[in-house]
Amino acid sequence: MGAAVISAYDVSKSFRVYDVGTGKGVLGAFKRRYYSKQALRGVSFDIGEGEIVALLGENGAGKSTLIKTLTGIIYPDRGTVSVLGMEPHAERVGLMKRIGVVFGAHPQLYPSLPPIDTFNYMRVMFGIPQKDFDRRLDYFLGIMNLRDVYRRQVRLLSLGERMKCNVVASLLHMPKVVIMDEPLIGVDAVSAFALRKALLDMRERHRTTFLISTHITADVELLAERVLLIDDGRLLFNGSKDQLKRMFGNKKQLRLQFGGRPAVNLAKYGKVLEQKENFARIEIDAKAEKSRRVLGLLADKDLLNYSVTDPGLGYILGKLYSRSRRSRSGK
């Protein structure tokens, strides 16, 4: 890891929001109850050059607020933010020359024009030499399977196609730092895989740093080494993907298909999660996977089929969120 290219120290931000009155009559819409929503509560972290970090959290946890703070759109109430040594909201224009930002929810493409017009606009906006532009565009269009669509009006493209073009528009100037807020909404598995490969390649060649907020666990599994997990405006976890997995013990799941009702007592091997007529799912200690005892079970003559799987990231996140929710409500 190199020097920190993105850092946040004790960042807090609150918004004034309101609920609208709900009643049977339309006049209920005039009633408002204002309150303050604390979106970020003292978030601190550093991201080094060349790191790929996933920003995770439930809906409304504060991910987008954090990203908007890092990109200079929002002024933090308290704390300091720095990207490439610049204070984003104070030095926004200078910073934007050197970073790439993708908002999945806000496509930057002109809807009435084909994506190529937006790409060309980016070429001038970021002063990309024509030769580099042509080469990079050709590369991205190829790997993302966009050659047939980039001259078609954006309005007529599918959601995934628009998203892919949106990402391409933010990468053409080869930014040093890329910050993305849910960039792959609606992108098919093949293109998403190709894009992840392209991002890894960018990191390999240019030591590009990536911070990606996502709900797609494959983004985390295949791309990120480190995870920042935000929950209710706080940084709940900051560490490697493997550390995250170990937080709930290093467990694996064993799925077993028997010829008939199993004769062995499965509880002996681990925690039985599910047991039906001739099927069972048990959780075992990862270290015990190759133990004599477990191997003995797998050699059982009644066992027709089995598989061993890591607990999915979704499972771990679910556990983390519910634990945090319990501690917040004081139970």
Binding site: K68, T71, G72, I73, R92, V93, G94, M96, K97, V101, F103, A105, H106, P107, Q108, M125, F126, S170
Partner: peptide
């Protein structure tokens, strides 16, 4: 209203 002002802010221009 739409929040797309965020996109304008990502351009290296005032």
């Amino acid at each position: 209203q739409s929040g797309s002002i965020a996109v304008s802010f990502t351009r290296p221009l005032g």
